[in-house]
Design a protein around this nucleic acid. Structure first.
Lengths: 221, 221
DNA sequence: ATAATCTAACTAACTGGTTAATTAACGGGA
DNA sequence: TCCCGTTAATTAACCAGTTAGTTAGATTAT
């Protein structure tokens, strides 16, 4: 039995949705590994098992294809994290769960984190996707996180930190470990990405953030 | 009066040391801005006001020139930070001074931080410079920082953190703010790199790290 | 037939790297 | 002091390979 043609209303050889998806996935891999400048359209076509001209049939040019790859990666991340923010949890638990979930997501999605990291660097030198990415994906998460923190401060659970700095700090602690893993491997000799080390790091990050966020006994309010 | 030929023992047109240095500086800028793959040797030559062939006279190829740029940037950073570690200060003060100095260095050296950040990303996909960079620049700093933290823990000044995770966490907090600045600018509307915001961040980082590092009253030892 | 999907082959521009020649300072011999 | 060979420093012009993007047509379900 062959795959049902679904409702693809078209008349031609292959399955167009599949071709498009294959190109997009191949592009994500290539862009994550090589960066925009280093990525080769031929390599993407080969990986997608498709003629190179088909990239330009579905996507205007390399930059547009890169933009589509970014949208895929960022929306995947945003959807995943929004789920946590929508839960009904007290501020402290919500922040801890958010951080833990974010950490696990990055640990499991190397390609995604590489792509995001690369785009962050490119943003500094005028990426044409910065505006869209920031507004559609980062801002919603950022605003929600800020609210959670303010609530926690108001209730006295948190120290009076500035969300504008605390949120990037949380993200920094989670993200940077993976970014620096190759260097750390050479420096320390251990593999920072082994399951044991990752679990260790997860705990360390949660400890670090908790120590900096929660109010301690005897501290002035 | 023309510039003294110094002791340049050579017989030719220009000043060779100057040409080499101009190439290296131009290369640093270009590599920081565009990455290795995106950097153009023609652009480097133009910026250095030198014929492109001269790049290959002084440096074997693009990759070697990139390696020289890395060595320049990393050793500058290392020398700067080692000064702090060599000071005679109690652990708590030393860590705070280290973080503050590191922060100020990155704030003042955009090119340096871009280059370092880019190489960290590349390290994950087999940079031929990773070994040298890690051993020569990161490892010495990392080991020294670890010692300081262990001393602080032993004296009871610090919480019993794991230096293997605490050091990367400190670095993360300092570095990530600059990496994420362009995105944050779009998200928040403010310019995170304005002097006021940078000063604010500096304080927030020190607060965050202090809260996570120092022992609090009534905490179990 | 028609229109959507797909491809082989091509091109124009670019890119890292090379070559052969040119220039200028130095040292030494007459 | 003047001439000249040597050698380091520098460049104009070039080349071969690569790259993003195009074109003209083929294939096939409806």
């Amino acid at each position: 039995m062959k795959a049902a043609p679904a409702k693809s209303r078209l008349g031609s050889r292959g399955r167009p949705e599949e071709s498009r998806a294959a190109i997009l996935q191949a592009a994500i891999q290539e862009f994550a590994r090589e960066g925009v400048a280093g990525a080769r359209t031929d390599a993407i076509a080969r990986a997608a098992k498709v003629n190179k001209a088909l990239l330009y049939y579905y996507f205007k040019d390399k930059e547009t294809l890169y933009g589509a790859a970014l949208d895929y990666a960022f929306s995947q991340l945003k959807d995943h994290m929004m789920q946590i923010l929508d839960r009904d949890l007290p501020p402290g638990e919500k922040i801890r769960t958010y951080v833990a979930t974010y950490f696990d997501f990055l640990a499991d999605h190397k390609v995604n984190r590489d792509l995001v990291q690369r785009e962050m660097m490119r943003a500094g030198h005028g990426s044409p996707h910065l505006q869209r990415i920031a507004k559609n994906y980062f801002q919603p998460l950022f605003l929600r996180l800020g609210q959670v923190i303010r609530t926690g401060i108001a209730s006295g659970e948190f120290r009076p930190v500035d969300p504008l700095h605390f949120v990037p700090s949380m993200i920094a602690l989670v993200v940077f470990y993976f970014t620096s893993a190759p260097v750390m491997k050479t420096v320390t000799g251990f593999d920072p990405l082994s399951p044991e080390r990752v679990a260790e790091r997860r705990a360390a990050v949660l400890d670090f953030i908790s120590a900096a966020l929660f109010r301690h006994e005897g501290e002035r309010r």
